Simulated assay, not measured.
Amino acid sequence: MPMVYIWMHEGKDAAYKRHIAEGIHAAMKDVLGVPNDTWDQFFNEIKPGNMIFDPNYFGVARSPDMIFIHFFFNTRPREMKERFFEAVADEVTRRSGLRREDLLMSITEVPWENWWAYGRTVDPTTGFDTRMTGQG
């Protein structure tokens, strides 16, 4: 049941945001094994002047199109998170046209017992939704 928050400057159309959302979802299904109906993404459009960042963050030129994606999900192995970051970057940039340099991401891991959704069933051995595939 990953929850995803996306911050970006205001002004992008619904189709652009949908491409980003679909890219994120494709990576979550592929790498994390989430079910197809797990869509919990929230776009936060920031007014000019309210998203301040260095245009050369980490020595890489960033544009005003920069977005920040914050994921919340159960604990995963380091290697899986590394694959996940790359898969999100690949899918989002391919689908939306966003430059890879304009994508920043982070993950907050949450213990499985801190999630609730009506209808969700949890495997007591793994702590993951029983409908998840693979290592989830």
Rank of each mutant, 00 (worst) to 15 (best):
I20M: 05
A21N: 06
E22I: 05
G23W: 04
G23D: 02
I24A: 05
A26H: 03
A26M: 02
M28A: 15
D30P: 01
L32P: 06
G33H: 11
P35M: 07
P35W: 01
P35Y: 01
N36W: 08
N36R: 12
N36P: 00
T38M: 11
Q41V: 14
F42T: 13
F42H: 15
N44C: 12
E45F: 03
E45M: 10
I46G: 00
I46C: 14
M51F: 15
F53R: 02
D54F: 07
P55S: 02
N56Y: 10
G59D: 09
G59A: 09
A61R: 13
H70F: 01
H70C: 08
F72I: 04
F72W: 09
N74W: 06
T75R: 13
T75I: 10
T75Y: 13
R78T: 12
R78H: 14
E79I: 06
E79M: 11
M80Y: 00
K81N: 08
K81F: 01
F84G: 03
E86R: 11
A89L: 14
E91D: 12
V92F: 01
T93V: 03
R94N: 07
R95T: 06
S96M: 03
R100I: 00
R100W: 00
E101F: 00
D102I: 03
L103H: 02
T108D: 12
